[in-house]
């Protein structure tokens, strides 16, 4: 029987959660005994090659591309895990959520103290994904099966959840591994 496949992505996140995944240290050797990685920044596979058992979502949705990628993950993965505070509650990017989008653009491209932009133009190339009005946690866009908060979630927490799911054990996080920071 072929190994189950795991896909990962970083949407509106900082890649810190993926760093935490790598922080499982030599247990990554055990992990690749258990699974193959599909679409993921870890192996740089850009598109899904087939059905995946687990999809790990880092980051919430701040633009239209994030939404498309997240929907693609939902379509291809049996289980979706939102991992990290950005995926579970919006995180640092969601700090813009009570500021009008136009003010965010003005600050970033026109009025910021380090901005040099005499024409005052805001980038609007078709290749640049449009920003959403707000930053949304993953479960506001698609159904999420498991949540693993933390900024980032610790390597031990990630390991506990992944190994439980891959060995058909119930996902139970010990008290000390559930952290929001």
């Amino acid at each position: 029987m072929s190994k189950p496949k795991v896909a990962t992505t970083s949407l509106a996140g900082c890649f810190g959660c993926h760093m935490s995944l790598l922080d499982i240290d030599d247990r990554i050797l055990q992990l690749i005994e258990l699974v193959d990685f599909d679409k993921s920044p870890i192996d740089d596979i850009k598109e899904f090659t087939g059905r995946c058992a687990i999809g790990l979502i880092e980051g919430g949705c701040c633009n239209e591309e994030n939404v498309r990628v997240l929907q693609d993950f939902r379509q291809h993965c049996d289980i979706l895990i939102a991992f990290g505070d950005c995926a579970t509650m919006g995180g640092i990017p969601a700090m813009r959520n009570n500021i009008p989008l136009s003010e965010c653009y003005d600050e970033a491209y026109r009025n910021g103290v380090t901005v040099y932009n005499p024409s005052g133009q805001v980038p609007d190339d078709p290749d640049i994904p449009l920003l959403l009005d707000k930053v949304y946690p993953a479960h506001a866009v698609v159904k999420i099966d498991y949540f693993l908060p933390g900024c980032p979630p610790s390597a031990d927490a990630l390991w506990a959840v992944l190994t439980a799911l891959l060995t058909d054990q119930p996902v139970e996080l010990p008290y000390e591994l559930l952290k929001y920071d």
């Binding site: 579970t88 009570n98 506001a140 908060p149 559930l178």
Partner: peptide
């Protein structure tokens, strides 16, 4: 929230100003 084992709130975030 830790004591209750809450991994994410079940309600939509309001993000009030």
């Amino acid at each position: 929230a830790y004591r209750f084992g809450i991994t994410a709130p079940q309600y939509p975030f309001q993000f009030p100003a």
